[in-house]
Amino acid sequence: MAMLALIVYPMFYGLYLSFFNTNLVNKWKFVGFKYYLQAITKSDFYSSVFLTFGFMILVVAGHFILGFILANCLNKKFIGRTFLRVIFMLPWLFPESVIALLFTWIMNPMYGILNSILKGLGLISSSISWLGSAKLAFPAVVFACIWKGYPLVMTMVLSGMQSISQDLYEAAEIDGANKWRQFLNITIPSLKPVLTTTLILDSVWWFKQYTLVYTMTNGGPGTATNLISLNIYGTAFNDLQFGKAAAWGIIVFIICYIISKVYRMVLKDE
Score class of each variant (00 low, 15 high):
233 Y>E: 10
43 S>V: 14
267 L>V: 06
177 A>S: 14
70 L>S: 10
119 K>H: 05
31 V>Y: 06
105 W>Q: 03
239 D>Q: 14
2 A>K: 10
106 I>Q: 01
146 I>H: 02
69 I>L: 14
213 V>N: 03
236 A>K: 00
230 L>C: 08
13 Y>K: 14
163 S>V: 11
143 F>L: 12
19 F>D: 05
187 T>G: 02
203 S>N: 08
57 I>L: 14
104 T>D: 03
108 N>P: 02
55 F>P: 05
54 G>D: 08
43 S>Y: 11
200 I>F: 10
257 Y>I: 15
42 K>N: 15
169 Y>E: 07
130 W>H: 05
81 R>F: 00
213 V>D: 05
157 V>Y: 04
229 S>Q: 11
87 I>H: 09
167 D>Y: 05
58 L>F: 12
219 G>C: 05
157 V>P: 04
267 L>D: 04
8 V>H: 00
238 N>Y: 14
14 G>E: 11
222 G>E: 12
107 M>Y: 14
205 W>L: 14
211 T>S: 12
5 A>F: 04
9 Y>D: 07
27 K>C: 06
91 P>R: 01
266 V>S: 10
41 T>E: 09
88 F>M: 02
97 S>P: 01
258 I>Q: 06
131 L>C: 09
47 S>N: 15
249 G>N: 12
144 A>D: 02
118 L>Q: 11
169 Y>M: 07
150 Y>M: 08
202 D>M: 12
197 T>W: 09
162 Q>S: 13
165 S>L: 06
252 V>H: 09
11 M>Y: 14
232 I>V: 13
123 L>N: 06
39 A>L: 01
245 A>V: 08
67 G>I: 12
23 N>P: 11
22 T>K: 07
144 A>F: 00
222 G>V: 06
85 R>F: 02
221 P>W: 08
228 I>L: 11
266 V>P: 01
50 F>S: 14
52 T>N: 05
269 D>P: 00
38 Q>L: 05
50 F>N: 11
115 N>P: 06
52 T>E: 05
142 V>H: 03
192 K>P: 00
159 S>R: 00
193 P>G: 06
150 Y>D: 05
190 S>Q: 10
78 F>V: 12
154 M>T: 09
129 S>E: 11
39 A>N: 01
250 I>Q: 03
200 I>S: 08
133 S>V: 07
86 V>M: 02
208 K>T: 13
116 S>L: 14
254 I>Q: 09
89 M>P: 04
236 A>D: 03
